[in-house]
Simulated scan of single mutants.
Amino acid sequence: MYEFRRTLIPCGLLLLCAAIMGCDSQTEQSQKTSDAKPESKKPKIALIMKSLANDFFSTMAKGAETHQQAHSDDYELVVNGIKDERDLSRQVALVEEMVANGVDAIVIAPADSKALVPALRRAREAGVVVINIDNKLDEEILATEKIEIPFVGPDNKAGAKKVGDYLASKLKAGDEVIVLEGIRTSFNGTQRRLGFEEAMKAADIKIADSQSAQWEMSMANTLALSMLSEHPNVKAILAANDSMALGALAAVKNNGKAGEVAVVGFDNIAAVQQAIKEGQILATADQHGDQLAVFGIEYALNLLKDPNAKLEDRETPVDLVTAEDLK
């Protein structure tokens, strides 16, 4: 029995040592695994737009989705929008939701140039890259919030002036026109109004009335009917976007002035292209909506690769579109 115990004890020691060595090996392997660099993941970019009921933003979404499909190895895309361009609280909520969902970048066409800035500041503080497209954020509010957010988009004033100049070439000095403005707290709405005004002033054409239809077709139709009745000598309606131009066109027809009152717009949506071909709308401006979000996405991807890159605005093209251009 004594000899048996002498043999058993060394064997137990051997098993214990083997177990300890095995644990050390597993610990070492675990340490190696934890020290290894995590697998790189594709950045996730959120596109947040204004009204999805507006054809311009539908075109923007399709352009962004087409770009992502062609670059599916480079990034993931989440597309969002609000039903009504006046629903600022919902757009703010979308920004917060995208940050909570861990997106790496937000490309946003803000419904308001001021109201979205605090939410976007919080997104920046959370480490999210933010690119502003379409409607420029208010510079004073950005300064107050102490953040820089680059703007990627067209010179809206210059685009509206091109449309206004073309309309003026079809009118004569002293003629009266009316203007349908966008949301007055939106930078692009203000700039388009200023572009129209500059063109009319240069041609000595009188703006008889100017009111905000808040980018909406139905509101534009109602306002235009009222304004045409109040100003029966009006020769043209300048609408700050194409949805309002279509509403104005319907008002002109209902007022029995088709062919007498010209209509111009801004955005170059499909329905207005057709109306221009048919001679019902005189002109619009093309800010290349199918590429506008793409320009912003590409800038965001560059900043994700180089976080220390200098932030700067980037101007995108805007072109006059007439019947001659659509032949």
Score class of each variant (00 low, 15 high):
1 M>C: 11
6 R>C: 07
9 I>K: 07
9 I>Q: 01
11 C>M: 14
14 L>H: 08
16 L>M: 13
16 L>T: 12
16 L>F: 12
30 S>A: 15
31 Q>Y: 11
39 E>T: 13
39 E>Y: 11
41 K>Q: 15
42 K>T: 12
43 P>I: 13
46 A>I: 09
53 A>C: 04
54 N>M: 08
59 T>L: 06
68 Q>G: 02
70 A>W: 09
70 A>G: 02
71 H>F: 02
73 D>S: 14
73 D>E: 15
76 E>Y: 10
84 D>V: 14
90 R>T: 14
93 A>M: 11
94 L>D: 11
95 V>P: 10
96 E>D: 13
97 E>Q: 15
99 V>I: 09
100 A>I: 08
107 V>M: 02
109 A>D: 06
110 P>N: 06
115 A>C: 04
123 A>T: 02
125 E>A: 11
126 A>Q: 09
127 G>I: 04
129 V>A: 02
129 V>M: 00
132 N>C: 04
133 I>S: 04
134 D>A: 12
134 D>C: 07
134 D>F: 05
137 L>K: 11
140 E>M: 08
145 E>I: 06
146 K>Y: 03
148 E>F: 04
150 P>N: 07
157 K>D: 02
161 K>R: 15
162 K>G: 03
164 G>T: 05
164 G>S: 07
165 D>E: 14
170 K>D: 00
173 A>Y: 03
174 G>P: 01
177 V>Q: 00
178 I>E: 00
183 I>Y: 10
183 I>V: 13
187 F>A: 14
189 G>A: 11
192 R>H: 04
193 R>T: 13
194 L>G: 08
202 A>Q: 11
203 A>T: 06
205 I>L: 00
205 I>M: 00
205 I>S: 01
208 A>M: 01
208 A>Y: 01
208 A>G: 04
212 S>M: 02
213 A>G: 11
214 Q>P: 00
214 Q>C: 05
216 E>F: 08
218 S>P: 06
223 L>R: 14
225 L>T: 15
230 E>P: 07
231 H>R: 11
234 V>P: 01
237 I>G: 00
247 G>N: 13
248 A>S: 14
248 A>W: 04
249 L>E: 11
250 A>W: 03
251 A>E: 04
253 K>G: 04
257 K>G: 00
261 V>I: 07
264 V>E: 01
265 G>S: 08
266 F>E: 06
268 N>F: 03
268 N>S: 10
271 A>M: 07
272 V>A: 09
275 A>M: 06
275 A>L: 04
286 D>V: 07
286 D>I: 07
287 Q>F: 02
288 H>L: 08
290 D>Q: 15
295 F>E: 15
296 G>T: 07
297 I>D: 01
298 E>L: 05
300 A>C: 04
305 K>E: 10
308 N>F: 02
308 N>I: 02
309 A>G: 09
309 A>S: 10
314 R>Q: 15
315 E>Q: 12
321 V>Y: 03
321 V>N: 05
322 T>A: 05
324 E>I: 10
324 E>F: 05
327 K>V: 06
